[in-house]
């Protein structure tokens, strides 16, 4: 039952992605690539790229994209619903507790305690994206695309030093890649 699978997978993604958009990345990779083979690593990298350039949370964008690819518009609706369901329940509950008791310290400090682990998981997803950009597969191989390595290094330096807008950096790398491909 594909709809139930989508619902359950994206429910887990919504439930366990703690601390913002990037936290959803390793979970999506785990669910949609490792467990279900709904996405290839390439389409995962594509949807991450598209997500950066369109409005909306990464998790919702992915839910919609995966849902449509796997089971059409109803699939997109089911996956998106699954993705926001945990938030809807938990956050409404927290809002209730906050306005009633003004105290959510324990919950918050536990979630904050999670943060270093979440950072580590985002790092592993980042490495997969690097492998995809450099070698065209989800692990590093000796077959390296030198152009992309250079693009990556330049983009990273530009982002870190001048704090340029990520959308701009990505559009520029796309344009450079296109020009290089046409000219060379």
């Amino acid at each position: 039952m594909i709809y139930l699978e989508l619902l359950w997978s994206f429910f887990q993604i919504g439930l366990f992605s703690i601390g913002g958009g990037y936290a959803a990345m390793p979970l999506i990779q785990h669910q949609a690539i490792d467990i279900h083979n709904w996405l290839t690593m390439q389409s995962f990298a594509d949807i991450m790229t598209i997500s950066q350039m369109t409005p909306g949370p990464i998790a919702i964008n992915c839910a919609t994209f995966v849902g449509i690819q796997v089971a059409g518009i109803p699939g997109a609706l089911v996956a998106t619903f699954g993705c926001v369901l945990p938030s809807s329940i938990i956050v409404t509950l927290l809002a209730f507790i906050y306005y009633r008791f003004k105290g959510i310290d324990a919950v918050q400090s536990v979630l904050k305690g999670l943060r270093p682990a979440v950072v580590a998981m985002i790092a592993t997803a980042g490495l997969s994206l690097m492998a995809m950009a450099f070698c065209g597969s989800d692990t590093f191989t000796s077959d390296v695309n030198i152009e992309n390595v250079i693009l990556f290094i330049v983009a990273l330096l530009v982002l870190r030093i001048w704090k340029l807008n990520p959308i701009l950096v990505m559009v520029c790398s796309g344009v450079i890649g296109l020009l290089a491909g046409v000219i060379l």
Binding site: M48, A133, N148, L156, L159, S173
Partner: peptide
């Protein structure tokens, strides 16, 4: 090429 950009962003 953009996949290199998005990897850098992450």
């Amino acid at each position: 090429a953009m996949s290199a950009g998005v990897a850098a962003v992450v």
